[in-house]
Design a protein around this nucleic acid. Structure first.
Lengths: 138, 138
DNA sequence: CTTATGTCAGTGAAACTGATATTG
DNA sequence: CCAATATCAGTTACACTGACATAA
């Protein structure tokens, strides 16, 4: 059994994801946002007024992880909840929306750069295949 | 500026890498190996007798991170160094090689499962495109 | 002298599990 | 009562930066 790291798709996947994360992190630093925080804000823009548990499922993490993430975003004034206890719905604040819009510009630029050498067809195919990988492992 | 997380290649990349990591982690647990440890052993099989600094460069991490990783592998008796100080060369021990061989079987099976719905052409293309992404971000 | 290296120490982000209280 | 939830607390794996002594 020989696993060639040089030709392993898994290895390339890890490298690409690490490189993307590093580039995103560097770009978002000036906005004082981590990659996870940005992802959460993006999710919240598309699906507002979810509960913590629903957000956790949407981001594929535990409730506890999402709770902690939201804590930071609350403190920063980027999200706020309406309602009490388990009825609390989380949504972006105006400040949060404004910050997210700036972050989206940066994130889109990073993704553009990452995909700069690929055709539109290549990008579509890659997306499709990545999702197929997720499904196969689920 | 609207970033659709559903169609973002970066988002799919993250999900795929997370799923792969989780599957690998679950598979390697019975061997008491983390994914990082397994990667380091695999690197060491293909390029034995490197120094800590060389290994770090090969794995794209800092030498401090590699030093810490190697500490665990040394303690577990899976790698050993010959030579003193900065001349020390790291290599797999017989135990390490035996463990790695079992891990390789598991890792290969996980990768096979992940790619099970893709043709050989698809896999080659995907690998190629992932590396193109890494290069574009470097 | 300069540079790369090994190593110690501290830090940080991000996930996890466990436990408890609450509530629909 | 039961299941899902919010939340507090502790832990872990992994990477980072900084600092320092040392050796090529």
């Amino acid at each position: 059994m020989q696993v060639e790291v040089g030709t392993s798709v898994g290895y390339a996947l890890k490298r690409a994801q690490t490189a993307l994360h590093a580039a995103l992190d560097a770009g978002l630093r000036e906005l004082d946002l981590s990659v996870s925080q940005y992802s959460c804000l993006e999710l919240l823009r598309q699906r507002p007024d979810l509960t913590n548990a629903e957000l956790a499922r949407g981001a594929f993490v535990t409730r506890q992880a999402m709770h902690q993430l939201l804590g930071g975003l609350r403190t920063a004034g980027l999200v706020a909840g309406t309602g009490e206890g388990r009825n609390e719905r989380i949504a972006l604040t105006p400040t949060g929306l404004e910050r997210l819009e700036r972050a989206s510009v940066i994130a889109a630029a990073v993704e553009q750069r990452m995909l700069s050498s690929l055709t539109g067809d290549d990008r579509r195919r890659m997306h499709e295949h990545l999702i197929a990988c997720v499904d196969a492992l689920a």
